[in-house]
Structure formats: structure tokens, C-alpha cells
Design a protein around this nucleic acid. Structure first.
Lengths: 207, 207
DNA sequence: TTTTTGTATTTTGTATACAAAATACAATTA
DNA sequence: TAATTGTATTTTGTATACAAAATACAAAAA
């Protein structure tokens, strides 16, 4: 029955999924024994998973009170977007400085499927968008940057709304960013990424 | 004997201190049972503390192998400095936008003790420097930014060298940053902070 | 009625126990 | 000698146990 292969990793992933898809709701308390039982594990690896989630800002632990699904207020959401501006902006700068064709190709590949289409599938575009923004970070090869960047995944899922702006509006912005990167124009690349995120941030609560 | 008040917090702090002051050396393996015994606790709260440290990049866990004091290679140190440029740069921008006299006062207070002196005490200046950089972050009031900023504390302690540049060189830079913030010149404040960190980064391995 | 107090129940934080994996090291073989 | 295998020891990952804190809730008091 005992099979030591890292149980807390799957628990962590499962809980993360449950949080991001709303199965566990904001503010909800995690009753460890119950969750552990429902997942068929003991509390020890569950606690490990919860610790990891806490460090990703998905869960909040109040000592002696319990662990709660993190809920984000208006200010906090805005603050997260500001962090994204800083981190993704820097990432774009680094990618532009790298002057690497492979990087540019990978970034382009996210959005080429949507170029010819008249009607863009929101679901698919939303995924591409998330992929693009996380690629921006990982392609830098900067491990600390990657470690620190866990806001990208929170972004729209937790807020409820899928996309903040229409694909028609953002598709061009995405390609402009990619172009600046491919030209090696670091200042421009950073500026465009920041503006791109800032525009969404300003619309966050004005919909 | 059992006294439930949050044992893992003190363990976390103690270990952090031991890592930062070199009592636990880079690459060293943490043998949980031994550390737990030496601290007079069990492995459970110790593991919690280790998880927290892992998320602060001070410790690295390899499944089934153990937890090791994180060691930083050249590239990783540079990458950390790049993150700091992004985060502290954004922080300076936010503080400049805030236009708050109290903030400016607090920042100034870090370095005023060194203004009149001919000979600056390195130890004291080093502390002031660390205080200044962490203030930059906390004064923004941006909680996610603060959560993500754990590099500042790693910086020189783990590298071994205390200060990378002389107080004579950096004191003026610090005041220029503060001035830009007090003027509300966000672009300039961000630019100066980035340059300030970049200069140190470029000297990291050229000493 | 609303508030307060006391008690039972639940839940957390920590300690301990134990199986499986990793490691160390001696004996064996080439 | 160096490489390999086998066994004992150590160490990790998980489960379980239990005391103290938190919570729920009923009874008593205002």
C-alpha cells in the first residue's frame, strides 16, 4: 500500500487545479482531514502541498485557524498586475537582448493559428495568451525570474473573467511585442509588454 | 512539555540566520533528524520550515535525496540581480508616483547618519544599504511585490562579500534615487535604481 | 429576546513510528 | 589493483497518535 514516489506533488497539482477551476472557492477553509481523506492520503503530505500553495499565493494560512483559499481584493489584483508588468517587462527586454531566432519562432507559434481566421475561438486564444506570457518568462532561462513568476497563472482564472480584452485588440499587440523582440529593440519590447498588461489592468474592474 | 505556539516559525528564522551567516554552508546537506534534535524539536515542524526556506531560494530539496543549502553559481547570482532590477525598479517608480513625504523621509533616514562623516563604517553602511533596498519594496504597500522579493536578503551575505562597491560611490546614487522619488519623476527613479543595481551586478565577479 | 458562560466536538500543531529508498562499506570478483 | 555485488545503516516520506487551541452549541443569565 505504501508507495513512496512523492505524493505531495500530485496533491499539490490536484489542489492547484481545484483552486484555479473554482472547485475550491475563494475564502473557503481547507479542512485538512477531510481533503486528505478524500484524496486518500494522510495530512503530512497534504500539509507539504499546502505550504507550496501558500508560497504561490493561492492559499493563506492563519496559524491555529487553518488554511484558506486565498481571495483577492481589488487592490491585490491590481498589485499582481503591477508585478507582472515588472517581471514580464524585464523578460521581454532580456529576450530582445538575446537576439535568438528560436525564441522568436516559439513566441510567434502561439498566435499564428489565429492570423488567418476571421472568427477567433476565445477558449483557444485564451490558452495561447497564457502560453505566450509564460513563455516570455521561461525563454529567458532566468531561473529566479521563473520561480518568482507565479502570478501569470492566477490572473484571469481566479478573477473569474477569462479574457479581459478581445483577441482583436490584443493580437496585434502580441505581434508588435514579438517584432520588437526580434528586432532586438529591448527598450521597445519592455515598453510594449508593460503597456499591454497595463491596459488590461486598467480594465480589470471597469467592465 | 508540549507548547503549541508555532514552533516552525522560530525554526525557520533560526535556520535562515544560520544560512545567511554561513553557519550552514552552501551545498551542505541538512540531515533532518540531527538538526531537529539539535533544535529540540521533531522533524514535522522542521520540514515546514525547510519548505518555507525552499520557497525563498535558500534551500533546495531533491526528492528522496534530501534538502541542501542552496549554492549559487555565477549565472544564478547575475539572474538574481536582474530580478532585483525589475522589482526594485518598479518599486521606485511606484514610490515616485505616490508622492508621499513620509516615504521620502523614511528613505532619507537610512543614509543621513553617513552624510557628515568623513570615514564611513562599512558594517553600518552595509546594514543601511540593505534597509534602504528592502524599504523600497515595503513602502510601496504592494503585498505581492513584497512576497516575491526575497532576493534582497540573499544578496551579499550569501555571496561572501559584504559590499560590492564603496559607500563613497553608492551614497550619492542612493540620494539621487531618493531625489527622483521626491520629485515624483517615476521614469528617472526607476532608471536610477536599475542602473544602481546593474553597476553592482557587473562588478559581482570582477573584483 | 439577546448575551454570556460552560462543555463537547472538531481541528490544528507537533511528536512518533515505520516502510522504502538511499547510502556506506565490506566482501567478492575480475 | 579496480570494479562489482551484497548487506547493514542511515535517512527520507508518509501514516498515525495525541495534546492544546479553536469552534460549535446548548444552557443559564440578563
Amino acid at each position: 500500500m505504501i508507495e513512496h514516489k512523492n505524493i505531495s506533488q500530485p496533491i499539490y497539482l490536484k489542489l492547484k487545479e481545484m483552486i484555479l477551476n473554482g472547485e475550491l472557492k475563494q475564502g473557503e477553509k481547507i479542512i485538512q482531514e477531510k481533503i486528505a481523506e478524500s484524496l486518500g492520503v494522510s495530512r503530512t503530505p497534504l500539509m507539504k502541498a499546502l505550504l507550496a500553495l501558500e508560497n504561490e499565493y493561492l492559499v493563506e494560512s492563519i496559524p491555529r485557524r487553518g488554511v484558506f483559499i486565498k481571495s483577492f481584493d481589488k487592490k491585490e489584483m491590481i498589485d499582481i498586475y503591477i508585478c507582472r508588468e515588472a517581471l514580464e517587462g524585464m523578460a521581454a527586454r532580456l529576450l530582445a537582448e538575446a537576439q535568438d531566432d528560436k525564441i522568436v519562432k516559439q513566441l510567434k507559434r502561439c498566435f499564428t493559428p489565429f492570423l488567418k481566421k476571421k472568427k477567433i475561438n476565445i477558449e483557444a486564444y485564451s490558452k495561447a495568451d497564457e502560453k505566450f506570457h509564460s513563455l516570455l518568462i521561461t525563454l529567458t532561462g532566468n531561473a529566479p525570474l521563473d520561480k518568482v513568476y507565479f502570478f501569470g497563472k492566477i490572473h484571469d482564472k481566479v478573477t473569474g473573467h477569462g479574457l479581459i480584452r478581445t483577441p482583436e485588440e490584443t493580437l496585434e499587440e502580441h505581434f508588435n511585442i514579438i517584432q520588437a523582440i526580434s528586432k532586438g529593440d529591448a527598450d521597445e519590447a519592455e515598453k510594449l509588454v508593460r503597456l499591454h498588461i497595463k491596459k488590461s489592468r486598467e480594465l480589470l474592474f471597469n467592465q
